[in-house]
Design a protein around this nucleic acid. Structure first.
Lengths: 339, 339
DNA sequence: TAAATTCGTGCAATCGTTTGCATTACATGA
DNA sequence: TCATGTAATGCAAACGATTGCACGAATTTA
């Protein structure tokens, strides 16, 4: 039994009306009488009608799908963001086409390709490293579809964004360490091509400055968000024989690597306190539990989604806005020297 | 500059040919001369032509998108699977529309809705609990589009699937514990509505039987994949005062919860050995590192994707196949009583 | 040299909906 | 009674690409 999918014309035929009427009835158009609507929906159900969104999308220009681009879904912050987005847009009938960039430009390109070809009605994205991809994002703007950035924004674009205050996050994390009596604080800096990592570094510097602690460049170690790199960095610290009394890592993963290496030789937090960033779930159950910074992923997602909906609602009159969430320092055992 | 998107007709006009020719040239149709193809592609680039997949999809019946349904992306196994799928299908030009079910039927329904309306060319899914949703999956089959199941299959459907041998996983994990000298082995069973958890339990029983250890029903504790529930279960064990010498948990999360609670009162693994299931990343860095079962998520994804491609390649002659991957026991400190 | 192929394109229908612009049938007001 | 208004529906043209069929020209075959 071939599936000759039922179309609105089939329904129209069965009811002796036109497909226009069926279409309007199905879309709850005001000009259609309630009686007709009843009949149509009933018949649609009976004939097991499934609307063809493609056709509708082609004609109306709205695919009712939005693209979401994240570095990678296994990072809990992004999973949380996706969930937040989904929660909100699903209400308005949008589906999500999700793409991962794995932080590589070629995948980012492919992502945009996929999205464009699917004619998404909007893109909610977290940019990868900030070079070379601006053109990609500009192309979205040229397509004249809403673009919302989250987590990692690109200021030059002047589009709406939802980010967390990374400067403040870095500042508070560092300040907390200072309050615990730390003076020789190492910072694991992320990829400084990416703005969020620059900001965290700035926050670190600002906190030091505020407390009159001299900033020492050699205490800033380049260390991507990766357990192994964190281990390497920690090993280097040990070799250097200039043992710090704290580490503020720009990522939980690097912090974890360092923790693993250092805990065998030092007491954490007594000898060396450690603070991470991102509130990955594992931070709460490593040993000792790790102090970190919560970025409110789910909220970020929700807000980004709302910004998107706003944007489509008042297309012309929409004014881009930058939403900045306050990070939340979660203090756990890995950094508590006092009390 | 309004963006009146360039269509193949525009290209055709500029080149004084018809849109048919342009279409064929762009699709590398054999009947078009190489010269023409060159001209067309050049002009397409020059005019910044972006194909409208919707239109193509509508006409050709192929959206070049496939739907992927997972319980939730933050579970690393699913993130890995998605990545595996993506790797393979991207090669053939497919995009992925990803939906999460959060293990709830209503979201599963919504997922199918989203996918159908987007006219996906196939669905690769992991089913939620096995009741109530069969109809959903049947509806996919009725639509006559390829359906591939992974991780959690539904045998009645008779479609292709890629799963890991959960029975064997349970068996090997338990056998390993027995080899370490354990006799009183508790099993944290997952939701027994879901087949994979049934299988893990069966494997557990089989290993016990093989070694002549009596199966005791009270040693099977219902415990969903959740840290908190694992803690609860462990607390109950302590209260019950019938301390086991090992726990085989059907999930890493529950195992972790138990580990957290038990390590304060018992020596792990000496007093109580612990084995989890799924090889979540955290298992390797909790303390002590946790023995677990690797499910080869990325491979599962790849294989599922290949099955899908096979299925579209020989539509009529395709014979569904069940692929069963061998799980891999990863032995770590949490279960090594010997040597 | 005529007939038969082959090659490269054009024509026009089609995919399933949406939607601007009639059109019809009444009801209302003057 | 006639113009006007309104509510409900029909007509037909899009949307942008694909594709079966036809066709003229060039090439090969007999």
């Amino acid at each position: 039994m071939k599936k000759s999918k039922t179309t609105i014309r089939d329904i129209a035929g069965a009811l002796s009306v036109t497909s226009s009427t069926v279409s309007r009835a199905l879309n709850n158009h005001p000009a259609i009488s309630d009686d007709t609507k009843q009949l149509v929906t009933a018949m649609a159900r009976q004939m097991n009608y499934k609307p063809n969104r493609l056709a509708a999308a082609l004609r109306s220009g709205k695919s009712m799908n939005i693209g979401v681009i994240v570095p990678m879904v296994e990072r809990s912050i992004f999973a949380a963001i996706i969930r937040g987005i989904e929660e909100v847009v699903a209400q308005s009938g949008y589906g999500i086409i999700m793409c991962q960039t794995y932080d590589e430009l070629r995948y980012e390109k492919r992502a945009f390709d996929t999205l464009f070809r699917s004619q998404v009605d909007g893109v909610i994205a977290s940019a990868t490293r900030s070079s070379g991809n601006i053109e990609l994002y500009k192309s979205v703007i040229e397509e004249d579809i809403p673009l919302i950035l989250f987590d990692r924004s690109i200021d030059e674009l002047g589009v709406s964004s939802v980010v967390v205050d990374d400067f403040k996050g870095g500042y508070e994390a560092t300040r907390h360490l200072i309050e615990q009596g730390c003076r020789k604080i190492v910072h694991f800096a992320g990829d400084l091509d990416i703005k969020i990592y620059q900001e965290r570094l700035k926050g670190y510097k600002a906190a030091l400055a505020e407390e009159g602690i001299k900033f020492e460049a050699h205490r800033v170690i380049n260390c991507p968000s990766d357990i192994e790199r964190g281990r390497k960095a920690a090993e280097q610290i040990i070799l250097d024989n200039d043992i710090p009394d704290a580490i503020f890592s720009s990522s939980d993963f690097a912090a974890l690597g360092a923790l693993q290496v250092l805990k065998s030789k030092f007491k954490i937090p007594e000898d060396i306190a450690i603070v991470g960033f991102a509130n990955e779930p594992f931070t709460s159950f490593v040993e000792p539990a790790m102090t970190t910074v919560n970025q409110h992923g789910r909220d970020m997602g929700r807000l980004a989604a709302k910004a998107f909906l706003d944007c489509v609602a008042n297309r012309k009159g929409y004014v881009p806005r930058q939403i900045v969430l306050q990070p939340e320092l979660i203090v756990r055992a890995s950094s508590k020297k006092l009390n």
